[in-house]
Structure formats: structure tokens, C-alpha cells
Design a protein around this nucleic acid. Structure first.
Lengths: 362, 362
DNA sequence: TTGAAAGCGCTAACAC
DNA sequence: GTGTTAGCGCTTTCAA
């Protein structure tokens, strides 16, 4: 049937030229059909499509990208995937990206700015069209300065910049400060007066700092005194030392507000190990709203960030930038509190103390 | 200083030709220096390097990939990132990949074979050099057949194939059957006689089936009768119906072996909601060893899979394949049991029943 | 509506 | 050691 089909020696993949030959049109026409980039006669289009499917044609996106100067490939830079909130975000990005035929190239940085740089550099070499990233500290990020200088489109997820500093940097986040304030106000509403904050290194995360501000706002509004925060290094698995320090004080806190759910869950575990029941002896609240907070006992009281929505919105904004739309104002998405069993009124503490004392004499 | 530097109109990125011109050598020599692909005189090398750094040269990997027919880009296909075991795996892959300057393109499939196909197709269009993937069911995966047919290198992670069916498919996993057996033997050793398995849809996961076999092995060896398993759909958030069914039987199980940690954690939560204390009334064991299992109260008894090592090993094998090495035999990595507080002897149930009865009369 | 031709940035074969 | 040449697969003028 086929006229003089070549020996098909090593069965290499068909190219656009092969399809063109088979369809008896020019490569240009094939390209036009496949990309719908220009009107083509119905006859030619049909011929191209049958030829393409007969040959199992798979466009080589490297060729296209090189020529067209766009790769249909988005870079994603996140601190870590061990933290479920970022894993959820990536999951959301992937779904949104694949819905519009974009590929995702991912890199993680461990909250380290040198690695942020290396990660971005790798992605840029691969000529991603744009980036979605969460950096440790957006306000003083060298990486963002570089991207700005090169006019490389990007959107920040989770990072939130002060309006003055936003400077045309598109961000998608919740209002960290307001959300933190609301959570701490909830604790105050429960009757807590001595509330301490537990955070990863503040240097590591601008979000932790904003949340600390919100914590301060809530206390100030209630004329309460902030306690010195406990800082836990990012990778430390054991929070017990920091907690013992916190709880050994003369007037120990009755509630802990943690800057992330992961931290909060670790704190809850280590409090249990130290013999401090949650929430009876001490209340614990988190921030993120990861699904796993609903699986623990007690379940975690937390601020829910809409991660999937943050991801979808970030990708949307980025696509806008790629299409040449102007930079949008920072997007603030709605958070909500999820009240779990890890928080209660502090009065419970007293009664538990009594109960514990009674039981101790068994 | 510079001689006749061009007007730098739109400040487009420097290419290898620019570097060559500036260094007064040929593009080929620049390439040789940058890739160390052939010996070059010290003088020329120096000239190239200074020119490259002066021009802020960033190699365009699209050009290289197109020409060299390798993209330094690995595709990763996973069922979901909401399940921490896969997020951890991806984290491990990313670290290993970046250590050797490989980029990672990720896609998730939601355990759906149509999506597996779409994901792989996208990655192949981008001309990834190879793939690391976890498929729902390796033995009857169309995607793997396709990859085989096209001689596209890949390594399976977590999937485990029967030796007969392995057919030169490289896999990295634990011995799921033996591990499950060991866990169930542990439960039996604690004194449990009625042990049920809880799994995601068996159709969805070959691993779940292997683990069920191991469960059967342990029971058979102890001359115990397997109970009908409970199957929970992948996305269902509420296990209560299935659990009520399980526990409403005449002789309800005293221990549940779950096919994944995520499932186990949900089961534990829902048991709590149903008023069945774990482990006092019923023991629960999981499979995966995700870090979050250590954060719950009670902490989760589980089989720990070495996810980071699985990732590193998978990437290693894949690099071997890319280098032309022959396919390795399936790699079985060591698992270990992590004994948490979610399992105990069944006798505890009786005493708790009594205690509960006493307390009920307060 | 279509084809011819040029070239995106890079590397590999070959000559010197 | 080094430069010249050709071309990876694709898109995009430009002319017909």
C-alpha cells in the first residue's frame, strides 16, 4: 500500500516531516493543523490528522519550544514536600496545570536561599515559561530580584508582601496577620491570658513573622502581655527541650499558638510525652489546615488555608502574566478557623490539676 | 574596554555564539568547555569561562536537548501527593535528581489508568529521558506496555511484581507480602485472633493485594480464619459506615490491619468518633511509616517503608538504564516494624469494658 | 490557503 | 586542540 516506505531501521519516532510527507502537504501545514494556528482546508486537515495518527506522531516539544520560545512548562519552587501544606499545593498546581496542557518542573529548597537560587537556575536553564514559588522570605529574596531583573514571570504562593513592598510582585495568600490575630482572639475568647507562640525560625519564614504580628495584635487589643516565643529549627524532630523551657517558667502559658500545623502536631505529641494533656492542661492551635490535623486525637484547632484554591489561583495569575496581562494586585484568599479538640477553656486546666492530684494518690 | 559591543537592544539572553565571539573561539569549543566533553587548552578554557560569566551566560537546555537527544529531565508519575508517602518519595527523588543536575517533571494520576496514560503522554512529549513511576496495578498496566514497546527507560517505585511477571521491569519496593505478614504476626503475637484487613479498593492497588496476601499468610500459619476485608474507596473521607459494618458483626475483630497509614489514621479517627478507644477496645496497624504516624495519639503501629531510600534507589537504577546498563533485578529494600501505641493485647479490651461500665454510672 | 526557506541554540562528526 | 559544517524538530515569516 505505502509507496516506498523507508526501511524503518531503528524505528525512531515520526517527525512532523514524516507526517507531512505521508499527508502530502508541507510541514508548515501540519504545524498549522496541530496547533490550530492558522486556517487550513478541511481536506488538508483531515489528511494530516489521519497521517499523524497512523504514524503515532508525538510532537517533540523540544523543537517547538526552541523555536517558539515558550516551553509550555512551569517551574515550581517549594520549601519542602514533607510539609503537607506544600504537597497539597503542588497537587493542586499539577491538576490545574495539566488541565491546560502545561508541564510542571519542581524543585524544593529546604527554606535555604542558596538552594532557592540553585533550583531557580536549573529551571531557567530548562527554559520554563514562568514560575510559581514559595520562598523563605519574599521581602529580601535575591532570587526574586533576579527574576524581576530578567522579566521572568512568576507568582508567589503563600508568601505575602507588605503593600509597600509588594512592588508589582503578584502573590496569592491568606491574610496571615489577620488570620493569626483571629485565632489568638479565639484563644483569648476561651479565657486564655498567657498565650505563647511557637514558630520555626522566624528568619526562615516571612509568614511566621506575619503570624507573630497577628498574635501581637490580638494580645495588644486585649491588653495582654506577649510571652517570648519559642523557636524551633526547621528539621528538629524533638520539641521537648523548647517546651520544657516554655512550661518551666513561673507563669507558664495556658495556650500555644503554633506557626504551622506540622509544628503544632509535633508540639502536641511532645506535650503528651511530657505528661501535659491537651487541651486539659494546655491548649494548642496551629496554622495551615492540613487534612492530617483532622485525624489526630485531639483534632487540631487551626487556621485553614485554601491550598487547592491558592494553587489554582496562582496558576491562573501566572497564565495571565504569560499572556501579557498586567500584574494583578496581591490576591488575598479567605481563611477560616477550624475548631478542633486541641483547644478549650483554661479553666479545664485547674480541674484537671485537681483530678490529676487525686489520681496520683491511687 | 569592550570592542564594539552590540547595542544590547532587548537584552535577550546571551547564547553560546555570543560567548564564542567574546572568547574568540568557536562555539564548538565553548560547548566542549562547558560540558567537559573533550580536552581543551587551558587558555581557551579560561577565556570561555570568563566570557561566559561576563555575559551571564545561561545554557539553553532546549537547544542542547534537541540536538543531543537527551533532556536531562526525568518524569515522575505518582498516584497522589495528598498521601504523604508519595510526597516523601518525591522529595527524595528531587534531592537525588538535583544532586546530579537532573530536572524533574511531575504528574499525578489519582490511581486512574486513563490519567496515567495522559500523564505519561505529556511527559513523553516533553522528551523526558526516563520515568520513575508508581502505577495502580503494574501487572496489567497499559502504560508500562507502551513504555516497553517504545524502549523508554523507567523504574517502578513501590510497585512490586511477581517474579514471573517482572519480565525485566525494574522495581524498587519493600517485600509487601512478607512485611504485611510480619505485621499481622505481630498482632497475633499480641493475642489477637480476629483480625480484619481494611484496604483501599483492591482493584486500585497491586500493593494492597500483596499486603492482603501477607495477611492471609500470617493467619494461615496460625490456623486462624481470615475475616472479610473492608474496602474503602480512595477518596472517601468517612470510614464510619464500613467500620460500623465491620464492628457490628457477631464476632467483631479485635484488630484491624490497614493497607496504608493514611487509611489507618482515618480509621483511628473514626473509631474514636464511634466510641471505640484504640487500642483498648480495638488495635489498629498501618503500612507506610509516614512521619505523621508518630504525631498522633495514640501513635501508629506500622510497617516503615524507607521512602527516601526507595527514591534514591529508583533514581539510581534509572540513571543506570540511561547509561545503557542492563536492567537490574527487582530491588527489595528492608522494611521494619514501628511499634506504636495503637496496638496492644486484646485482653485490654475486656478491662476497658469494665472500666467504661463503671465510669458510665457516674 | 499553502509551501519554501530560514533559523531557534546547541552538539557531534569530521577535517585540519 | 580547534574550527567548520550540518542539522536535531519545530514554527514562522514571506511569497505565491
Amino acid at each position: 500500500m505505502t509507496t516506498k516506505s523507508r526501511p524503518q531501521a531503528r524505528r525512531s519516532r515520526a517527525t512532523i516531516t514524516d507526517v507531512a510527507r505521508q499527508a502530502r502537504v508541507s510541514p508548515a501545514t501540519v504545524s498549522r493543523v496541530l496547533n490550530a494556528s492558522a486556517p487550513v482546508s478541511e481536506a488538508a486537515a483531515r489528511a494530516v490528522r489521519t497521517a499523524a495518527s497512523r504514524l503515532d506522531f508525538r510532537p517533540n516539544l523540544l523543537g517547538r519550544s526552541l523555536r517558539a520560545r515558550r516551553s509550555a512548562n512551569i517551574g515550581v519552587v517549594l520549601p519542602t514536600l514533607s510539609h503537607p501544606v506544600f504537597a497539597e499545593c503542588l497537587q493542586g498546581l499539577e491538576a490545574a496545570a495539566r488541565a491546560c496542557d502545561l508541564a510542571l518542573m519542581v524543585a524544593t529548597t529546604g527554606y535555604d536561599s542558596a538552594q532557592e537560587n540553585a533550583a531557580v537556575e536549573l529551571l531557567l536553564r530548562h527554559r520554563v515559561d514562568g514560575l510559581v514559588l514559595t520562598v523563605a522570605d519574599a521581602a529580601r529574596s535575591k532570587v526574586l530580584d533576579k527574576l524581576d531583573a530578567e522579566r521572568m514571570p512568576y507568582v508567589l504562593a503563600y508568601n505575602q508582601l507588605a503593600v509597600r513592598r509588594a512592588q508589582g510582585r503578584p502573590t496569592v495568600s491568606v491574610d496571615n496577620r489577620a488570620a493569626a490575630r483571629q485565632m489568638v482572639e479565639h484563644l483569648i475568647g476561651l479565657g486564655h491570658r498567657r498565650i505563647a507562640m511557637v514558630a520555626g525560625s522566624f528568619r526562615e519564614s516571612d509568614r511566621a513573622r506575619l503570624r507573630h504580628r497577628g498574635y501581637g495584635d490580638a494580645l495588644a487589643a486585649a491588653r495582654l502581655v506577649p510571652l517570648p516565643p519559642a523557636e524551633l529549627p526547621f528539621m528538629a524532630d524533638d520539641a521537648r527541650l523548647a517546651l520544657q523551657d516554655l512550661l518551666g517558667r513561673r507563669e507558664p502559658p495556658t495556650a500555644l499558638f503554633c506557626s504551622s500545623d506540622q509544628l503544632a502536631l509535633r508540639v502536641m505529641r511532645d506535650l503528651a510525652l511530657l505528661g501535659h494533656p491537651v487541651p486539659a492542661r494546655i491548649s494548642v492551635a496551629g496554622f495551615d489546615g492540613v487534612q492530617l490535623g483532622t485525624l489526630t486525637t485531639p483534632s487540631l484547632t487551626t487556621v485553614v488555608q485554601p491550598s487547592t484554591q491558592i494553587a489554582a489561583c496562582a496558576l491562573d495569575l501566572l497564565r495571565g502574566l504569560l499572556a501579557g496581562e498586567p500584574v494583578q494586585a496581591p490576591a488575598l484568599l479567605h481563611h477560616r478557623l477550624r475548631l478542633g479538640e486541641s483547644t478549650s477553656a483554661p479553666m479545664a486546666a485547674a480541674s484537671v490539676h485537681r483530678r490529676a492530684a487525686r489520681t496520683a494518690g491511687r
